[in-house]
């Protein structure tokens, strides 16, 4: 226990006072703003550009108990060349798997430049001793994961024990070494937008490179207004500290239309600086094929069908 616990960066009371001193979020207003941005109409050249950007931002994900090396290799092939019939399609940002399959993915993606992201820290519930969580992280990093997607201890957060959450993130941060750290807030369990804003700041302050909405195992997963609140958080955090943190909505993003709405949200909330795979990712599995299908509609002028894209 002793070696695994990093003392909190500030006193527990100070941390609590800081988080509770953040401006509140009015749910109705945030929902309304997100809904209004969702009415933006993205056409023609802008749409083509946005689809390619969205593809390049995808963290292509498989997180099933039934995952096998074969399944992961297939996904990696898809990641490197999403549309075998069209080489102009960019590769995705990363492949996201469980920690025990990192090695398979790293080998499959060798030479492609695509990173491997691994969920860790007793994903998805986060209910394990810290030592086990850190061992999980170290194993993934040792197997070659370039990115670690950790989950926070929602129980501790909801109990107001922010210092524990903070200490855990800092410990994972250290265990990551050079790997990027994405901190999953599991906003579906945090419920209120005030909590989402507080958890975002807590994670950023503890060293997150990305803040991520969801595991995909809890409903609701990513939503536009939750992502809006997180984009406001990274925007404000940069203004306050100069450090830029990325955002990753994950789960429930299935269509091109959805993906474009997220890009609009990024563009008009955090700003165009965030419109890069370095700072914005879409955690998804089925989204990619819809992006490919819409892309082909734009290039060929006719509607395509699912049989023309690979199921991986």
């Amino acid at each position: 226990m002793s070696t695994e616990t990093v003392p909190p960066g500030r006193g527990a009371a100070g941390l609590r006072a800081f988080l509770h001193g953040l401006p509140g979020v009015d749910r109705v207003g945030a929902d309304e703003r997100a809904a209004r941005l969702a009415t933006r109409s993205i056409k023609t050249t802008a749409k083509a550009q946005a689809i390619d950007l969205a593809i390049a931002m995808v963290d292509l994900t498989t997180l099933e108990g039934a995952d096998t090396p074969g399944k992961v290799r297939a996904l990696c092939a898809k990641a490197a060349r999403p549309d075998p019939e069209d080489r102009s399609v960019p590769p995705v940002a990363a492949v996201c798997v469980y920690s025990d399959l990192v090695g398979v993915a790293v080998e499959a993606l060798d030479g492609t430049g695509i990173g491997v992201a691994s969920v860790a820290t007793a994903f998805p519930s986060g209910r394990a001793p810290l030592a086990a969580k850190l061992a999980d992280v170290r194993a993934a990093v040792a197997a070659g994961a370039a990115e670690i997607d950790m989950v926070i201890d929602r129980g501790a957060f909801l109990a107001g024990d922010y210092a524990t959450v903070d200490a855990e993130i800092r410990a994972v941060r250290e265990a990551c070494g050079d790997a990027h750290l994405k901190v999953i807030l599991e906003t579906g369990e945090l419920v209120t937008y005030d909590n989402v804003r507080r958890a975002s700041w807590l994670a950023m302050d503890a060293g997150a490179d990305f803040i991520k909405t969801s595991t995909g195992k809890v409903s609701p997963a990513a939503t536009l207004p939750v992502t809006l609140v997180m984009l406001e958080a990274v925007r404000d955090y940069r203004a306050a500290t100069g450090r830029t943190v990325g955002v990753k909505p994950a789960g429930g993003i299935r269509t091109t239309k959805d993906a474009l709405k997220y890009l609009v949200l990024v563009n008009e909330t955090a700003g165009p600086d965030w419109l890069t795979p370095d700072l914005f990712r879409l955690g998804a599995s089925s989204l990619l094929n819809d992006l490919l299908m819409q892309r082909r509609k734009l290039t060929t002028g006719v509607y395509s069908g699912p049989d023309h894209f690979t199921l991986d």
Partner: peptide, 10 residues
């Protein structure tokens, strides 16, 4: 930087 200029959507 104009990565994502909206085309006219009349």
């Amino acid at each position: 930087m104009d990565l994502f200029a909206y085309a006219p959507a009349p």
